[in-house]
Deep mutational scan, measured.
Amino acid sequence: ATNIVSKVKWYNSTKNFGFIEQDNGGKDVFVHKSAVDAAGLHSLEEGQDVIFDLEEKQGKAYAVNLRIK
Rank of each mutant, 00 (worst) to 15 (best):
L41S: 05
I20C: 02
V64R: 06
I51W: 08
T14L: 13
Y11L: 01
E55P: 00
S13C: 14
W10V: 01
L41A: 08
D49T: 15
G40H: 08
Q48P: 02
K69T: 13
L44C: 02
I4C: 10
R67F: 05
Q48F: 07
G59K: 06
F52M: 04
V31Y: 02
G59E: 06
D37W: 14
I51D: 04
S43Y: 13
N24H: 12
A38C: 09
N65E: 03
K57V: 11
F52R: 00
V5Y: 11
E45Y: 15
D23N: 14
K7G: 02
L44R: 02
F52W: 09
V29C: 03
V50W: 01
V50S: 01
L41R: 05
E45P: 07
S6D: 02
F19E: 01
W10N: 01
A61R: 15
V31S: 00
A1P: 10
L66F: 00
A61D: 08
G26C: 09
D28E: 08
N12A: 07
Q48W: 13
F30V: 03
F19N: 01
V50R: 02
Y62V: 08
L54P: 00
K57A: 11
D23V: 15
V36H: 00
A61F: 15
V29L: 06
D53H: 04
N16F: 09
S6P: 02
I51H: 05
F17E: 02
V8Q: 02
A63V: 06
V29F: 10
Y11R: 00
V8T: 03
D23K: 14
K60R: 13
V50K: 00
S34I: 09
H32L: 04
K9E: 01
T14S: 13
T14M: 13
A61N: 10
Q22W: 15
G47A: 06
A35I: 07
S34R: 10
L44P: 01
K7Q: 06
K15Q: 08
E21H: 14
I20F: 09
I4P: 05
F17C: 03
V8G: 01
F30P: 01
A63D: 04
Q58W: 14
D23P: 15
E56N: 11
N24Y: 11
S43L: 11
K15S: 07
Q22S: 15
T2L: 13
S34T: 12
I51K: 05
W10M: 04
H32P: 04
D37C: 15
H32C: 07
N3E: 07
F52D: 00
N65V: 02
V31A: 00
I68C: 08
N16P: 02
V8L: 03
K15C: 10
D23W: 15
H32D: 05
D49S: 13
Y11K: 00
S6G: 15
K27T: 09
N24M: 10
S43K: 12
V64W: 06
L41P: 02
K33D: 02
Q48V: 09
V5R: 12
D37Q: 14
Y62D: 04
W10K: 02
G59I: 01
A63T: 02
K9Y: 03
V50T: 02
A39K: 03
A38F: 07
L54N: 02
A38Y: 07
I51L: 09
L54R: 08
F52T: 00
K33R: 11
E21N: 11
V29G: 00
N12D: 12
Y11M: 02
E21R: 14
N16R: 15
L54D: 00
K60G: 07
E46P: 15
F30Q: 02
V5A: 12
S43P: 08
S6F: 06
K15E: 05
E46C: 13
K27R: 12
I20D: 01
N24G: 13
E45Q: 13
K15V: 08
N65W: 01
V64P: 03
K69L: 15
K9F: 03
F30M: 04
K9W: 00
I68W: 07
K27E: 09
V36F: 05
V5S: 12
E45W: 15
G59S: 05
E46F: 10
G25Y: 09
T2E: 10
E45N: 12
L44S: 00
V31H: 02
N65I: 03
F30T: 01
I20Y: 01
S43N: 12
